[in-house]
Simulated assay, not measured.
Amino acid sequence: MTDHPYTDNDLRAEAARQHATLTDDPDLMGVGEQMEYAWVPSVETTEDGSARTWKQLLVVEDETGDDEDYTAFGEAQRKIHDLIQGAADVSEWAVSLGAAGLTRTVSMGWYVTGSGWDLAVQIAHLPGIKPEVCDEIESAVRLAVERVFREHGLVPRGLDTSA
């Protein structure tokens, strides 16, 4: 029995519920605010070696520098909003990982029948586990999933480890 009228599981359940609610109906304006000064991972760095933000990449100033065209930024903002809203609910899993002190390390998605992933697996571990152990586990999971697909007459057409 604890000093509180709730359990750790109650806390985790509420955190998962709120996490799911935040992703179920994200605030479009909030998405834009978070994008404005966030770095775009795939964009080459500028001449001085710094990365570029979504605003630097997509907002166009007119000749005077006074008026700005946010059309491309708004389009990306809506696409990101839709991706958040359409995401699989992994809230409980995410909260449980954090509570256990685990770190997400690798995601794998397999293409078998359609144009999108047919199966995805995400692996998380304690930060202290040796990289060679993690690599061996990742390889074992990948081989096991592909073996099961083949046993059922399905041939994986590709593996995406950026899943």
Rank of each mutant, 00 (worst) to 15 (best):
T45S: 05
Y70A: 03
A20G: 00
S42A: 11
A16L: 06
H19F: 06
A51P: 11
G32T: 06
R52A: 10
A13Y: 12
S50M: 11
L22G: 03
G32K: 00
E44R: 09
D24P: 03
D48M: 02
E33W: 09
P41F: 10
V40K: 03
E63P: 07
A51M: 10
V59Y: 05
G65E: 04
D27S: 00
E63T: 14
A38S: 09
G32V: 08
T45A: 06
L57S: 09
E33M: 04
A51D: 07
Q56W: 13
D48Q: 02
E61V: 13
E47V: 15
M35E: 01
W54C: 04
P26A: 05
G30N: 03
A20V: 00
E68A: 12
T45M: 00
A16W: 10
Q56F: 07
D67T: 12
P41T: 07
A16S: 05
L58R: 03
T46C: 02
D48L: 04
G32M: 01
T45Y: 03
K55A: 09
D24M: 11
Q18L: 12
D48W: 08
L58M: 06
V40W: 04
D62T: 09
Q34S: 09
Y37M: 10
M29G: 10
D62C: 08
H19W: 06
V43R: 14
G49E: 12
E33F: 08
D27G: 05
P26W: 00
D25R: 07
P41K: 09
L22D: 01
Q34K: 11
E44N: 11
M35T: 07
V60S: 04
A51Q: 13
D69N: 13
T21I: 09
T23A: 08
A13Q: 15
A51Y: 11
V60R: 12
A51G: 14
L58E: 01
Q56A: 10
T53R: 02
G30D: 02
E33I: 07
A38C: 07
V31E: 01
A20C: 00
T23L: 08
L22I: 06
G32R: 00
L28I: 09
P26S: 00
W54I: 07
E14A: 02
S42W: 15
D48A: 02
Q18E: 11
D48N: 06
E36R: 12
A51R: 13
P26R: 01
E47Y: 13
A15Y: 08
E47L: 11
E36W: 09
D69Y: 11
D69R: 04
D24L: 07
D67P: 08
E14Q: 12
T46K: 10
Y70F: 15
A38F: 07
W54N: 09
T21K: 05
T64A: 07
L22V: 02
T21Y: 03
L58K: 02
T23N: 06
R12C: 06
E68H: 15
T23S: 07
Y37V: 05
A20T: 00
E61K: 15
E36D: 01
D25N: 11
A51H: 12
G49F: 12
T23M: 14
W39T: 15
E33T: 08
D67M: 14
V60P: 04
D62L: 06
K55Y: 15
V43W: 14
K55C: 01
A16H: 08
T71F: 14
V43S: 10
L57M: 14
R52M: 12
T64Y: 14
D48E: 09
V59M: 03
G32N: 03
A51L: 05
T21N: 01
